[in-house]
């Protein structure tokens, strides 16, 4: 499975409205719930926030990758979000974050999904990938980055 197989343009928002970390996570989870990929908003929100409590997933370089596992996740999903103004995501480098990938997986995910997610994580460490994502103005362009 490729990264692109897991992307869904209905799960992309290139102009997040939220002003803070909790808001961003909320806004992105709402998309999952709205599209029916997650049955319980409460459960996935708790899983993601619990993970943030261990250590912030704001890894720096303008990136945040909140993620969580929950049985109420119907299908492993990636939500892409972008904040034009930048958000304080409690980043390692203490700089604002602009690009977010929220990852939701069921407790017993198939390896192929997890592999694709690991590939996504690796790709984000590449500066070129990050720059292209910053520039992307349409869901199509986001999609193209990972082709």
């Amino acid at each position: 499975m490729k990264i692109t197989d897991m992307l869904n343009e209905k799960l992309m928002n290139l102009d997040l409205k939220a002003n803070d970390k909790a808001g961003v996570i909320n806004e992105m989870i709402d998309m999952l719930v709205y599209e029916g990929f997650v049955l319980s908003k409460k459960a996935i929100l708790k899983a993601v926030m619990d993970r943030e409590a261990i250590a912030s997933t704001g890894v720096g370089m303008g990136i945040g990758i909140p993620h969580g596992k929950s049985n109420t996740v119907v299908k492993p999903s990636i939500v892409f979000g972008k904040s034009i103004k930048g958000i304080d995501f409690e980043s390692l480098d203490e700089q604002p974050s602009y690009i977010f990938f929220l990852i939701a997986v069921p407790e017993d995910s198939a390896n192929e999904h997890l592999k694709a997610l690991s590939q996504l994580s690796r790709r984000l460490m590449n500066q070129e990938v990050r720059e292209q994502l910053m520039k992307a103005e349409s869901t199509e362009e986001v999609y193209k980055v990972f082709i």
Binding site: R51, I65, I103
Partner: peptide, 9 residues
């Protein structure tokens, strides 16, 4: 901890 993202990054 979750083994989804940071491990690979």
């Amino acid at each position: 901890p979750t083994g989804i993202a940071h491990t690979y990054m």
